[in-house]
Amino acid sequence: QLVKKLKESGMTFKVDGSTMIFAHGLEFKLDKICITFKWNEGQKVLDFFGEAGEFSEVFPGFKYYDTKFSGMKVRCMLYGEFLGSDTDEVLYQNTDIVEIDGVLTHVQSLEFYYENGELDNKYYKMVEEYMKHNNRDLK
């Protein structure tokens, strides 16, 4: 539902975090939905969810805002603050187009996760096994 509503609103985003693994078809209990937006669209994100507030900056170039949609926790993330970080090209790098409930959506690629993920993360082994089973390239 969230992906469909974001698309209908004209928001530019990609599915990210552990949600991208779920969106690629690996099944596990999803505890939150992770979506990345363009760096300069923080206010648009707050407006979409109908909330006042501000994003928490964890470190320069990354901030997030937690909210809820249909009872599910949603983490809205912004990466950037460098020249060109607000382009579709930067947002969509290392993504695949995945169909989510009939809606084609940019989703962070499993290859990118595998190459950059933490080996001790609980999802890393799951992604590795999935990629091996589906003859996807491993680093």
Rank of each mutant, 00 (worst) to 15 (best):
N121V: 04
S18E: 07
G53P: 00
S9W: 10
M72A: 06
F55L: 00
I33W: 01
I33Y: 03
D101N: 09
D66G: 11
N134C: 09
E115Y: 07
L6N: 14
Y124N: 06
E118H: 12
G25L: 00
G53R: 00
R75H: 11
D47L: 02
T87Q: 06
M131F: 01
L6G: 14
E99L: 09
V58A: 13
D96N: 14
D66K: 14
T36D: 06
L104Y: 09
K132G: 07
R75W: 05
E54N: 11
C76A: 14
S109C: 07
D86G: 15
V15Q: 01
E81S: 15
K68W: 07
D120A: 07
F55A: 01
D137P: 08
M20E: 07
F13N: 00
G50F: 00
K14E: 02
V74K: 08
M77S: 05
K44C: 02
F37Y: 08
R136V: 01
Y130R: 07
L110G: 06
S18M: 10
E81Q: 13
M131T: 04
L119F: 07
S9Q: 12
V90D: 13
K7E: 12
E128V: 07
S85Q: 05
F49A: 01
D101S: 06
M11G: 10
D47V: 00
V90G: 09
C76Y: 05
Q43E: 15
M126D: 09
V74W: 08
L104M: 11
M20H: 10
F69N: 03
M72W: 00
E8P: 06
V58M: 12
D96Q: 08
G61Y: 10
V45D: 03
K139W: 08
E89P: 08
F49K: 01
V58K: 13
K122P: 09
Y113R: 11
M77N: 05
K122Y: 12
V127Y: 03
E81R: 13
G50H: 00
L138R: 02
L138A: 04
N94W: 09
D137W: 04
E99I: 08
K63E: 14
L83T: 14
L104H: 05
L78N: 06
V90L: 14
D16P: 01
V107N: 03
Y113F: 15
D120H: 12
K32Q: 12
F48I: 00
N135P: 05
N121H: 15
E27A: 05
A52Q: 14
F62P: 07
N135A: 12
T105K: 03
C76Q: 09
V90H: 11
S18A: 11
K4W: 13
F112T: 05
Y124T: 04
F13T: 02
F13W: 02
E57G: 03
D96W: 04
V45M: 03
P60Y: 11
K29P: 12
F22W: 15
L6V: 13
L138M: 01
M11P: 09
H24R: 09
K5D: 15
V45R: 03
V15I: 15
V58I: 13
